[in-house]
Amino acid sequence: MTSGQDWQGRVGDVWAAEWQRTERSFADLARSLDAAIASVAPDRGQALDIGSGAGSTSLALQAVRPGLRITGVDLSPELVALAGNRAGDVTGARPRFLCGDAIAVADGEGPFDLFVSRHGVMFFDDPVVAFRALRLAASDAAAMVFSCFDARERNAFATVADTAVGASPGPETGYTPGPFAFADQYRVADWLEQAGWQPDSAAQIAFDYVAGQGDDPIEDALSFLSRIGPAARAMAASPADRMRIGDALRIALAPYQIGDRIVLPASAWIWRASANRSA
C-alpha cells in the first residue's frame, strides 16, 4: 500500500523524476478524461484538482476554461514544484498548485464548483468521509469528474509485473487505499451516494498504457517499470531480485511490442457525479 507519507517522500520524488514517462503512459486515458471534464466544467468559479501530480489535468482544464480559477493540490513537494514550473511556461491564465491535503484545502477555500482528479481519489483513507467533505465544500451546482483504475486483471502493467515477480494477488477484502481500490463500480457508486453525491455515469475506458518507446522499447519499459508500478518495490529488494525480475519482465513485455513502443492494454473508469441538493 502507498501511504500519504510515501507520496510526501520517496514515491512522490520518483514520480516527479519520471513525470515524462508517466505522462506518456496515461496520455491515451488523459484525452478521454480531459474531454469528460470539459463537458461539465463551468466558465467561471472555482475548481479543485485532487492529487494534481505533474499538473497536466489542471493545465488542460485551464486551456479550455481560462476564466475558471483552478487549484491543484498534491502531497508531494517535488510534484507540486514541477507542476508550478510547468504552469510558469503558460501564457495567460494559470492554475496554482499547493502542497498539502486536498480535503483541507477544499474545507478552507470552498465553495468549489468543480472537483477533478486523475487517479488521485484511489488513495483516500476513507472514501465516504473524503467525498462527504468535498460535498460540504461544493456549491449546489457542483460537478465532480475523476478517473480510477479498473480491475487489476484488466491492466497488463500490473499482471505482467505479477508474472515477472511471481506474485498471485488474491481478491481484495475490505478497503485498502491503492491503485485498484476503486475498481468495483457498485462500491464506488455506494460511497458517492452515502457522501451526498449523485453518481451520473461511470464509463469503462480501455486505453493504451505506453510503457516503453524508442530504439529499444523493451529496455525503456523495463527501466520505467522498475521505478513505477507493482514490480518496482520487489525489484528494490536486492540486486539478485532486480536481475531475476528484470529478465522475466523482458520476456513478458516482448509480445506487447508494436513498432518502437511497448503498448500494454489497460482499463479505467471515468466517473461523473453531481452535488445532490437534497443531501
Rank of each mutant, 00 (worst) to 15 (best):
T2A: 10
S3F: 03
S3Q: 07
G4P: 09
G9Q: 05
G9P: 02
V11P: 07
G12A: 10
D13W: 05
E18T: 06
E18R: 15
E23L: 04
E23H: 08
L29M: 09
R31M: 10
S32L: 04
L33V: 13
A36P: 01
I37Q: 03
A38R: 06
A38H: 01
S39Y: 11
S39H: 15
A47F: 09
A47Q: 05
L48P: 12
L48N: 02
L48S: 07
S56N: 12
T57P: 10
A60M: 04
A60E: 08
Q62K: 14
Q62P: 06
A63R: 15
V64M: 01
P66M: 00
G67F: 11
L68W: 12
G72F: 00
D74K: 11
D74S: 13
L75P: 12
S76H: 04
S76E: 04
E78M: 13
V80Q: 10
V80M: 08
A81T: 12
L82V: 13
N85G: 15
A87Q: 06
G88S: 09
V90I: 15
P95L: 08
P95T: 03
P95N: 11
L98V: 09
D101P: 10
A102E: 00
I103M: 07
I103Y: 02
G110K: 14
F115D: 04
S117M: 00
V121T: 15
D125S: 15
V128Y: 04
F131V: 05
R132H: 15
L134W: 13
R135D: 07
L136C: 09
A138F: 12
S139N: 08
D140A: 13
A141K: 14
M144W: 05
F146G: 03
D150K: 09
R152D: 00
N155M: 14
A158T: 06
T159K: 12
V160S: 05
T163Y: 08
A164E: 02
V165A: 06
A167S: 15
A167H: 11
S168N: 14
P169L: 13
G170S: 14
P171S: 15
T173N: 13
T176M: 11
T176I: 11
F182L: 14
Q185N: 03
V188N: 13
L192I: 05
L192Q: 09
E193N: 12
A195T: 08
Q198Y: 05
S201T: 13
A203G: 07
D208T: 02
G212N: 04
Q213H: 12
D216C: 06
E219L: 10
A221F: 08
A221H: 08
F224T: 07
S226W: 01
A231W: 01
A232N: 03
R233N: 07
A234T: 13
A237L: 12
S238A: 07
S238N: 03
S238F: 04
P239N: 10
A240I: 08
G246V: 01
D247E: 13
L249T: 00
L253S: 07
L253R: 04
Q257W: 04
L264P: 01
L264E: 00
P265M: 05
A266Y: 13
W269E: 09
W269L: 09
W271N: 12
R272W: 00
A273F: 01
A275R: 14
N276R: 14
S278W: 11
A279M: 04
